[in-house]
Computed example of a mutant assay.
Amino acid sequence: MDFLLFIQAAVMGIVEGITEFLPISSTGHLILASELMNFWTKEKSDVFVVAIQVGAIAAVIYEYWGKLWGAATGLVTGEKKGRHLGISLILASIPIMLVGLTFGQTVKGLLFNDISVAIGLIVGGLIIWWVEKNPRQIHAEEVDNITIKEAIYIGLIQVLALIPGTSRSGATIIGAMMLGVSRKAATEFSFFLGIPVIVGAGLLDLYQSYHVFTTEQDWMVLAFGTLVSFVSALVLIRVLVAYVAKRDFMVFAWYRIVSGLIILLFALTGWKLW
């Protein structure tokens, strides 16, 4: 048994759990971490990067089970708040599912590289900086206050997350803030919106590429990475909700810009960090 592979999978799981819900691009960080550690073959690593995101989203389901169950049952019982949230999440999830099913593999093949990640980080950082410097008047303090129309707009913005380095969380949180949604409500809606998208993408990619895992150890490594992702994401969710209640996202804007420039410099010059 290759214990180094399990250690690398744990590192990848921690990176996923920490970055999935921050506006800094989990996929971009996973691609870079994979290349830095020379983790697995590229074919296995690419599938692993998508599949372990299911562990992070499972942490959201665990943490917000009550509200999510209310949204699911509200679609049947007609309970006003639950039904509204349920419909909002369904409509907001449709755009990225349609685009992802149509172009997901093409995007994965063309843009899963250092330069795409760097550009996505820099552009996203500049957008976050601009939004924080030009705040909108808040009219939706809680996630239940987000209108159906706004939910659809946020869903359309989420399509940008197919580009590595963009960040699904960053796109949806900042997009919601541009519409007048509070940081806390935007963050929670982004958590919920990730459930159908990430679970769907993870299971679909695993179904289409399960043949790359040829041994029992391969599946054990994937399961271990997913478990580590779940635990680290659960911790991050609680920390992030407390953070956004008091602070803005400027630190993430600067982090994205600086890290993107560094990655771009090394990618274009051929220098190595290791």
Rank of each mutant, 00 (worst) to 15 (best):
E150A: 05
V258G: 00
L265V: 13
L268P: 06
T166K: 01
A267H: 03
G165E: 02
F21G: 03
H211M: 15
V197P: 08
L160Y: 11
F224R: 14
N113H: 10
D144Q: 07
M177K: 09
S25W: 10
G124Y: 06
G270Q: 08
T19W: 05
E63H: 08
V47I: 14
A59M: 07
W65E: 05
F266I: 15
L261D: 07
G200W: 08
L264P: 00
V11L: 15
A223S: 08
G86L: 03
V251E: 02
P95F: 10
L98Q: 02
F230H: 13
T172Q: 02
K108S: 10
A185L: 12
K272M: 10
V181W: 12
L91T: 08
L121Q: 05
L203P: 12
W69K: 12
L227M: 06
T27A: 00
A51H: 06
A267N: 08
M12I: 04
V199H: 06
E35V: 05
T214C: 11
L193Y: 09
I198T: 12
G125I: 03
W254K: 14
G55A: 11
P23E: 06
I31F: 07
G180D: 06
F6P: 09
E132H: 14
H84R: 12
Y64I: 01
L85A: 13
A56K: 09
Q208R: 15
S229I: 10
S229P: 04
N134M: 02
H29C: 10
Y62W: 11
H139I: 03
G175C: 07
R136D: 00
E35S: 10
L5N: 13
Q105T: 04
V244D: 09
F192I: 00
L4G: 14
V241L: 11
L179G: 01
F48A: 02
L236I: 15
A267M: 11
L236A: 15
I146N: 00
I94Q: 09
T215W: 07
G260L: 11
A33K: 05
I195P: 02
L4N: 15
W219I: 15
E141S: 09
G28L: 03
E132I: 12
M97V: 12
T172Y: 00
T214L: 13
Q158L: 12
I18P: 02
A253W: 07
